[in-house]
């Protein structure tokens, strides 16, 4: 047991990565099942974490369960390494696991993310952990959990297209811009967590392991490396990975997802990369 090996214990006397080993084992089982059935939502006994629901309790539990002392850990929140949520989760694992941390996507072996996939290409051996608020893509169309489970089991996914139909009839195009549903390997329809649909193509055929944890809803699901995830659409309204039609004001990139930043109260605004690490790297390269 890791618990008995003193050098994993930190000064705060928590077990390595906060959770006890039995809980980690339970979560790992759920993760393995999720990897074996890509896109299937595996129920797990989510624990109380020292942070509120909605702040990434699911992602933190998954990260804790897969973390090793050799890992280099990165946390991003809406693409940024320096927001409250990212900073506090990074600190949490620095204190309870003593792992090395980084802001560089390429250097990290374990990345916890809220609402983005990093711009830099992920590689084999990396694990990307998503924080998921609502894992059930059918939830707002069919409130009964008993019914949605049955619909997943029987592959009855017509209802998902009703949502897209409603989008087109109301807005003239598929207006769903985030949490855009994907079909995994032609089987399960999955909510990729609220990432912008710009990131959807990166879900598919990704060399890294992608794990999704929903703490309040007590579900874990997963995409193994090189798994196909097709965004749902209509034949005459195909899927489009949309973004703001601007280059980044700081690094000049025109192929990244952008945040709109209001700069004054006279209508001034600028568009900058939401992935701070990617943007800073490019700025340094340009300066050099």
């Amino acid at each position: 047991m890791l618990r008995e090996r003193g050098h994993f214990m930190t000064e705060t006397a928590y077990n390595f990565a906060y959770l006890d080993e039995e809980t980690k084992r339970m979560i790992r089982r759920a993760i393995l099942k999720g990897l074996a059935i890509p896109g299937y939502q595996v129920p797990f006994a989510s624990r109380e974490m020292p942070m509120p629901y909605g702040w990434g309790t699911g992602g933190v539990q998954v990260s804790a369960a897969v973390m090793t002392p050799e890992d280099r850990f990165k946390v991003i929140d809406q693409g940024a390494d320096d927001t409250t949520n990212a900073v506090s989760i990074r600190k949490f694992f620095e204190r309870t696991a003593g792992v090395a941390t980084t802001t560089r996507t390429e250097e990290a072996s374990l990345i916890q993310t809220r609402h983005r996939i990093p711009e830099a290409a992920l590689a084999e051996g990396q694990i990307l952990v998503y924080q998921v608020p609502i894992p059930e893509p059918l939830r707002f169309l069919e409130p009964r959990e008993s019914e949605t489970r049955k619909m997943h089991a029987l592959e009855e996914y017509g209802l998902m297209h009703v949502k897209l139909y409603e989008d087109i009839s109301r807005h003239g195009h598929i207006a769903t811009a985030y949490a855009y549903p994907v079909r995994v390997e032609g089987r399960y329809v999955m909510d990729p967590s609220p990432i912008p649909k710009f990131d959807n193509p990166k879900l598919s055929d990704c060399p890294a392991i992608q794990l999704f944890g929903a703490g309040r809803e007590q579900r874990i699901y997963a995409l193994p490396p090189y798994t196909r995830a097709a965004s749902l659409d209509f034949e005459d309204y195909p899927f489009e990975a949309s973004k703001a039609e601007h280059p980044c004001a700081l690094c000049g990139a025109d192929d990244t997802y952008l945040d709109e930043v209001i700069t004054d109260d006279a209508g001034g605004r600028m568009f900058v990369c939401s992935d701070t690490d990617y943007c800073e790297t490019r700025q340094k390269e340009r300066a050099a």
């Binding site: 017509g158 209802l159 009703v162 139909y165 409603e166 109301r170 209509f234 034949e235 005459d236």
Partner: peptide, 21 residues
């Protein structure tokens, strides 16, 4: 909560119709 058109179209989509028009 779904428009009249969506209500009628649901059964079509449930049996595999994927052409909005």
């Amino acid at each position: 909560g779904v428009s009249a058109g969506g209500n009628v179209g649901e059964r079509l989509m449930a049996v595999g119709a994927r052409h909005y028009g």
